[in-house]
Amino acid sequence: LTELETIYVTKEHLQETDVVRAVYRVLKNCPSVALKKKAKCLLSKWKA
């Protein structure tokens, strides 16, 4: 997740890969609050 925060991701990348699905899975299933927060921030950033 940290690496995903530092790289530039285009909408095309998100549509062509399962990155969003994987990050969403972390948000829903990971017991770590810190990782959930990171995943939520990434998804919000990409949605904007």
Rank of each mutant, 00 (worst) to 15 (best):
L42K: 00
T17S: 09
T10C: 03
S32T: 11
D18P: 08
E5I: 04
L35G: 00
K37P: 00
E3F: 15
C41A: 14
A48R: 12
A34V: 04
V23F: 11
V9G: 12
C41R: 13
A22I: 05
W46Y: 04
E16A: 11
C30F: 13
V23R: 05
E3H: 02
V19D: 02
K45A: 03
A39R: 00
N29K: 10
Y8D: 13
T2Y: 10
V33I: 09
L43E: 00
A34G: 10
V9P: 10
T6G: 10
S32N: 11
L42C: 01
K37M: 01
R25F: 01
R25A: 06
V19P: 07
Y24V: 13
D18H: 12
Q15I: 04
K38Y: 07
E5L: 06
V33A: 11
K28D: 01
E5R: 01
T2V: 01
C30G: 11
K28S: 05
L4T: 15
K37D: 02
T2R: 11
V26P: 09
C41P: 00
V33Q: 11
T6S: 13
R21G: 10
N29Y: 04
S32C: 15
Q15D: 06
A34Y: 08
A22R: 15
K11M: 07
T17P: 12
V23D: 03
L42H: 00
W46N: 01
L43S: 00
E5W: 01
V19A: 11
Q15C: 11
W46P: 01
W46F: 10
L42Y: 02
R21D: 01
C41W: 11
Q15K: 14
L43M: 09
V19M: 12
K47C: 05
Q15M: 04
C30R: 04
E12K: 13
P31Q: 11
V23H: 01
T10I: 02
L43C: 02
S32R: 11
E16F: 12
A48G: 01
L14M: 13
K38S: 07
V33P: 13
T2M: 04
C30V: 12
K36M: 12
V19N: 02
Y8K: 14
L42G: 00
K45N: 05
V23T: 09
N29T: 12
R21C: 04
Y24E: 05
L14A: 14
L4K: 15
S32W: 14
V33N: 06
R21N: 09
W46E: 00
N29D: 08
T2S: 14
L27F: 01
A39C: 12
N29V: 08
T17V: 04
R25P: 01
V26A: 13
K37F: 05
K11R: 06
W46G: 00
Y24W: 15
K38R: 10
Y24S: 10
I7P: 12
Q15S: 07
P31I: 15
T17F: 01
T17A: 05
E5V: 04
E16D: 12
K38W: 07
P31M: 15
K38M: 11
D18M: 15
V9K: 14
L1C: 08
V26F: 13
K45Y: 09
L42Q: 01
E3D: 07
E16L: 07
T10A: 11
H13G: 07
L42T: 02
A22Q: 10
A39G: 03
R21M: 06
K36N: 01
L35R: 03
V23M: 10
Y24R: 15
K36E: 00
R21H: 10
K11L: 11
L27M: 06
L4Q: 13
T2H: 10
C30S: 04
E5F: 05
T6Q: 12
Q15G: 08
V20I: 07
T10S: 09
V19F: 05
V19I: 09
L35S: 01
L14P: 10
N29I: 08
I7M: 14
K47L: 04
T17Q: 02
A48I: 06
T17C: 09
L4G: 13
S32Q: 05
E12W: 02
S32P: 12
V26G: 09
A34D: 13
A48H: 06
R25E: 01
E5N: 03
C30T: 03
H13S: 11
Y24K: 14
L43T: 00
E12H: 03
H13D: 12
K36W: 13
V23C: 07
H13L: 01
Q15F: 07
K45G: 00
S44Q: 04
K11S: 11
L1M: 14
C30I: 14
L1H: 15
E16Q: 15
C30P: 07
K38V: 11
T2I: 05
L27W: 10
T6K: 10
Y8R: 09
K38Q: 02
T10M: 09
L1V: 05
K11P: 08
L27V: 04
L43F: 12
V23Q: 00
V19R: 12
N29F: 09
C30Y: 02
A48L: 00
A22V: 05
D18N: 14
K11T: 03
L42D: 00
H13R: 09
T17H: 05
T17L: 00
E16M: 12
D18Q: 10
L4S: 14
V26S: 07
K28Y: 02
K38E: 00
K47D: 01
V20E: 03
K36I: 08
E3M: 10
Y24I: 13
Y8Q: 15
H13C: 07
Q15R: 12
H13Y: 04
L42R: 02
V20D: 07
C30H: 02
L42E: 00
A48P: 03
I7V: 11
K28R: 10
R21K: 07
K36S: 03
E5A: 07
E3L: 10
A48C: 14
K11A: 13
D18E: 05
A34H: 10
L27E: 00
P31R: 14
T10Y: 01
V20G: 09
K47N: 03
K11Y: 03
L1Y: 04
K28H: 05
V33L: 14
A39I: 14
L4D: 14
E16N: 08
K36T: 05
S44T: 03
E3G: 05
L1E: 06
K47P: 06
V33W: 09
T17N: 13
V23N: 00
V9M: 09
A39D: 01
K36C: 07
L43V: 06
A39L: 09
T10G: 08
E16K: 08
L4C: 04
S44F: 08
T10E: 09
A22C: 07
L27P: 04
C41L: 12
A22F: 06
